[in-house]
Design a protein around this nucleic acid. Structure first.
Length: 262
DNA sequence: AGTACCACCTGACGGC
DNA sequence: TGCCGTCAGGTGGTAC
């Protein structure tokens, strides 16, 4: 489930399981998921070292090695990391596995193979090459304002555009619009004087809250749409019916009552 | 610039 | 049971 909040949780998970453990070998069961790196190169980057740190930018997770190389994981729509010891605990669609000296494994599971595994020796160069905008949790107000101003597109589409702001996908863009009580097709140009600032604050608040809840395995706030996305379910605020429409090829969920046109 | 559509890939679910 | 369309928390290319 990989938008920014899940990625924060993945990072937390890797931090608490996989740092400072000697790497023994790797297994690549889906070589087509390696992006710009061969299996041999990947093995040489990871062989005989250990992970010392992690970093997240948008939906990408970076694992730093003691030799200052970076393993990069992108999780597509269905990816997640899994740390385990015995084979019976292995996830169902492992595509890439890091084997530690002590017999444990860190698996990259990605059912639909829409993610990517890659390496770089310069994080910033990689981010630039992928044309990623500033990370949605770290972006400052001025930078956000710059990247969002002077456009006539829909807010949802803008928020999901990784080159504008990195980390937001279908679910959390819907949530930002829901919290703002804006209709799903609202445009940047529809925002009034303080609207852009409210959008920024709401985006930060939603992502921060969601990340904390996901990491702590806590329920999301009761007034969040995210837990009620099944079309036909009840709006957690007004009890109305949640609808689905297509925006930019994605199924946007919203409450026609709470998010009525102004 | 913005949007629409298609493609990549796998699996679950509902209708006939 | 099989077949088919639709949908899924992502992204990239192409064509209006």
């Amino acid at each position: 489930m990989p938008e920014l909040p899940s990625l924060e949780s993945f990072r937390n998970y890797v931090n608490s399981t996989s740092l400072y453990k000697d790497l023994d070998s790797i297994d690549v069961s889906a070589p087509e998921m390696l992006e710009g790196v061969t299996e041999d190169r990947l093995a040489s980057v990871l062989g005989g070292t250990h992970f010392t740190d992690t970093f997240r930018h948008g939906k990408y997770l970076f694992l730093k090695t003691a030799r200052d190389g970076w393993l990069i994981l992108h999780f597509g729509m269905t990816g997640f990391p899994r740390y385990y010891e015995v084979e019976e605990s292995a996830p169902e669609h492992q595509r890439f596995i890091v084997n530690f000296d002590d017999g444990y494994h860190l698996a990259y599971d990605c059912q639909r193979k829409l993610g990517q595994v890659s390496v770089t020796d310069d994080r910033d160069v990689f981010i630039a090459d992928q044309d990623l905008g500033p990370d949605a949790l770290r972006v400052g107000w001025e930078a956000f304002k710059d990247t969002m101003t002077h456009t006539r597109g829909m807010i949802k589409t803008r928020l999901m555009d990784q080159s504008k702001v990195a980390g937001i996908g279908n679910v959390w863009s819907d949530e930002v619009l829901f919290q703002m009580k804006l209709p799903p097709r609202a445009k940047i140009g529809d925002l009034n004087g303080d609207g852009l600032r409210e959008l920024y604050d709401t985006m930060k608040q939603v992502l921060q809250t969601a990340a904390e809840c996901v990491i702590q395995s806590e329920n999301l706030p009761a007034e969040y749409l995210a837990g009620h996305r099944e079309p036909g379910s009840e709006c957690p605020v007004c009890g109305g019916e949640i609808k689905r429409i297509e925006i930019g090829g994605r199924g946007a969920r919203y409450c026609p009552n709470c998010q009525a046109e102004a």
